[in-house]
Design a protein around this nucleic acid. Sequence first.
DNA 1: GTCTATAGCTGGATAGAC
DNA 2: GTCTATCCAGCTATAGAC
Lengths: 210, 210
Amino acid sequence: MSDTKQRLLDGAIAAIREHGIAGVSARTIAAAAGVNQALVFYHYGTVDDLLTAACQAGTAERVAHWSTRLAEVRSLRELLDVGRALHEQEQELGNVSFLAQMLAGAQSDERLAAPTGAALQLWVDEIESVLRRLLAGSPFAEIADVAGLARAVSAAFIGLELYGGVDRDGMERAMSALDQLAVLIEIVDDLGPIARRALQGKITRATRRS
Amino acid sequence: MSDTKQRLLDGAIAAIREHGIAGVSARTIAAAAGVNQALVFYHYGTVDDLLTAACQAGTAERVAHWSTRLAEVRSLRELLDVGRALHEQEQELGNVSFLAQMLAGAQSDERLAAPTGAALQLWVDEIESVLRRLLAGSPFAEIADVAGLARAVSAAFIGLELYGGVDRDGMERAMSALDQLAVLIEIVDDLGPIARRALQGKITRATRRS
DNA sequence: GTCTATAGCTGGATAGAC
DNA sequence: GTCTATCCAGCTATAGAC
């Protein structure tokens, strides 16, 4: 990977972070990367292809970076702490914001849909494996669809990131509320087998209805 | 409100829905509205001002529409059902998608930030009032930050909408998982006073730490 | 209020010098 | 590989006819 190609990848993330999907262009990317505008097309063909590459490479790098730390998590509360730290640090680096903007663009640009979905899937897989490990042996694993939960967590991260852009205090309150809610999961572990079975039936009935 | 002004408001929502915040313009809006492009500027001054007006009027109308139905909800499970119906219908009308795109644009266009935040707040207030009514007298109200929960729900709606654009099946699974999770709230009502107090202390300790 | 026409600008993409 | 120069499309916004 040549220096220029890497600078363009970093520049793409920086440009989207600064100008959003609506304001990103070969010129804004080149300016952020400190290279000539024509090099975008020489190295990547089109702006979309560069965004695709940046999405793939950037997300893979961040997921790999957090993967080791997530592998050390031993409880749901620890996971919440790591999740908060992850959110804060990625927000500074702009990767959550980058993914959110790509996702917004992917809604109407089908060339962005596949790479954005694949990048998000990297996070989903990582979160799912952590949740599955933590909930192994827990009664909650029998009740919950862990794969669905991992997707919900990922989607909520995106939504909270965007919401924080127009109401930072509101986002903080929302995250604290989710912390409280997540602790509810832990109480299931404290239930006896009879109460647990009753809960399980309750959830099955409730979700089958809708 | 003249016919043309209303057509432009509807056209703005339709254009954002079709082309996203990155592809919306006076021309695409005028085409969707079936009017001349110059009328955008005659009636609203700038494209941003038109988007602002569409955001305000469109969201106020949809919130008012659902407000009556939400007022009839009597349980959390009913609320989940209404929430699903709301998501499906608004997805067809494009209002959730519109808000998501506005939110994405608001991250880097400060002129969109205030109106988008205000529009989202209309949903937050509505959800908060329903939650507060449903949880009145419930032990969960003593534990939870209802205002934070309402914000989390709103943000999650946005995130799920965007996620659904790149992985529809994944979004469905995520929503089902959230259904399961929401039922957990109901079990708190079944707890006796001692278990409830223990839970409350547990949540307080867990959230104070982070 | 609505239309045409257009000025002035920015964007994607390419050709060709170096 | 990198640069300058440039074409052409599409954009905001306005002027002026109707």
